[in-house]
């Protein structure tokens, strides 16, 4: 634990920004786990939300601070500090050719279902997740429907009992 803390302190400070008055941090993938851990030690006691955004068709977003290279996927984590009544949001850039981030399960077990959902719908993998499987879609489903290159109605709905000809 102290190792990670030390590396976070030694490393450059995590770029921050504000969006509609809400504070946002932009850690890199390497600093992601360490940042969340130090935030947890600071008092952010619960991981409220974890989701992914696919920026495939909106690459030129302007709300990233300088030095952050926009990538296709963004893992968005919401943490809350009850004692100070503050929230903080983390936006982690994840490239399309290697969509993996470390899992937060060891720090916040409550992210288990949220990370499964993110994997299910976006195909972003969470390394170290104890049950890395689909959660909403059937286990044999092919594809990740919330990706922007999966169109609406692109997959014909098949009912197992439906006959081929009517």
């Amino acid at each position: 634990m102290s190792d990670t803390e030390a590396t976070v302190e030694e490393a450059a400070p995590v770029p921050a920004s504000t969006s509609c008055g809400q504070s946002v941090l932009h850690p890199g993938r390497d600093a992601y786990l360490g940042t969340v851990e130090s935030l947890r030690n600071e008092g952010y006691c619960s991981a409220i939300d974890l989701t992914v955004v696919d920026y495939l068709t909106h690459p030129g977003r302007t709300d990233l601070p300088e030095g952050i290279e926009p990538e296709r996927f963004e893992v968005v984590v919401g943490l809350i500090d009850h004692a100070r009544r503050t929230r903080i949001r983390l936006r982690v850039q994840v490239p399309a050719d290697d969509p993996t981030v470390p899992s937060l399960f060891d720090l916040f077990p409550g992210t288990e279902a949220m990370e499964r959902e993110a994997f299910d719908l976006f195909g972003v993998s969470f390394e170290g997740h104890p049950d890395h499987s689909r959660i909403l879609l059937p286990e044999d489903w092919v594809g990740h429907p919330l990706r922007k290159d999966e169109g609406i109605g692109a997959i014909p709905v098949q009912f197992k009992a439906a006959s081929e000809r009517r």
């Binding site: 969006s19 509609c20 809400q22 409220i48 939300d49 955004v53 977003r61 302007t62 709300d63 968005v76 919401g78 929230r87 949001r89």
Partner: peptide, 8 residues
């Protein structure tokens, strides 16, 4: 307008 926000 372009941006992102979380409401609860």
């Amino acid at each position: 307008p372009e941006g992102e926000v979380y409401a609860a």
